[in-house]
Design a protein around this nucleic acid. Sequence first.
DNA 1: GGCCCGTTTTGCGCTATCGCAAACTGCCTG
DNA 2: CAGGCAGTTTGCGATAGCGCAAAACGGGCC
Lengths: 236, 236
Amino acid sequence: MAKVDTSLVAHLPLFAGVKPEDLEEILREARSARYPKNTAIFEQGADAQSFFLLLHGHVRAAKTTPTGEQIVVRYVAPGETFGLAMAIGTAHYPATAMAVDDSVVLIWPTSAWPRLVERFPAIAANTLQTVGARLQESHTRILEMSTQQVEQRVAHALLRLAKQSGKKLDHGIEIDFPISRQDIAQMTGTTLHTVSRILSGWESQGLVESGRQRIILRDPHKIVLLSERTADSGPA
Amino acid sequence: MAKVDTSLVAHLPLFAGVKPEDLEEILREARSARYPKNTAIFEQGADAQSFFLLLHGHVRAAKTTPTGEQIVVRYVAPGETFGLAMAIGTAHYPATAMAVDDSVVLIWPTSAWPRLVERFPAIAANTLQTVGARLQESHTRILEMSTQQVEQRVAHALLRLAKQSGKKLDHGIEIDFPISRQDIAQMTGTTLHTVSRILSGWESQGLVESGRQRIILRDPHKIVLLSERTADSGPA
DNA sequence: GGCCCGTTTTGCGCTATCGCAAACTGCCTG
DNA sequence: CAGGCAGTTTGCGATAGCGCAAAACGGGCC
């Protein structure tokens, strides 16, 4: 089993307030694994046997309805935890996690959680904070879906992705993992057709440059303006 | 200050795993207060100086956009906590809490939280579970807003309210606090006009009975069927 | 180097839902 | 008991965005 160096993870929010020697102990309970691009890490509804910390790569968490429609719950960036089902009181994963890029994760057995929390209460507090932050993001998303038009929502979504996983280029910011129009549609509650039309429009105005599962924000500032424009403010 | 009997709150999820004598100590740090109908308990953006446990009544948590639109984040039922801003890492309340009925709450100063969590780690774990449950509900709501039509969303919203705060009558289930079409619109991402039209339709089919800030589900089962109907399934 | 498949683009009609406006109703207040 | 007001109902366009269909594109695989 690959040994994980504590220095790689010591600075993560999850381990804030945990002493280095304790961290060592915590990591001893984990194993690491690699998931190639486009492989599932766990499936919605499956027994939550493990929880995860993403070390490298990108993971998409998506939820599927009984009728087959999907939404993207979030993209997981390196350093973030996911699959915390049992920490929040569920025996089954509420979503499917899929590696969108070759990814490396740390894996703890679910059964380790109660013990870890008891020995290192800071972990529970830290997790509470992250889950709280995610709750707030969800509320923001609901607010946007309720009050904004599709174009604004797409703008917000791209800006958020750029902030979380943007790679600075000299001619803009590139979203650092493969993402399709369909994915963006599933993040914003619209259809891939509409997303495609919007991006085409932006491309012709020089706001973005995009292609197959690839998006570069060429003019983030103008996109911010777009994201703030209300239905009736300003000209088209 | 009114003394709160431990037996009133001992069974709440928040205090699961807390010993009765400890509970006593916890309650000593709280004060109780009464908020008349339609008074604000805290305002979005204000310093999070306290967190709350609702003992009696009903509280609406709502979020407002810079442009003045509102959404209802949730309705708080007796026994639930709210205003946990700092527990989840925010110094300011992310929403406004308003008593929709005469309400009684327990209030702890925010400053008590770290101490409580340290002395009674179960509280952090319990809170993590509730926040996790709310996160899941938010995701469900996003899923609904993305994939369902307004009528289905309204049906789901009413069923959820009935489950959480329904009063059984012999001729149906009444939602046990004043709630307007506007409120429902703000829960489902639509307009009060559309909600009004939908409820009128249902009323003429005998599914509901409703009036000024009052809704009775006369035929919950049929409403469940409605909530499950997809855009193309079955006749209108 | 060519083929195949997943992704993207684009056109076109359709409709669920919004937005505005106006009338109505039932409560609560004075 | 009258009046006023918040909440509700309803009508009537207007339209953003969907849904379907088809074509174009681009990358990777053999």
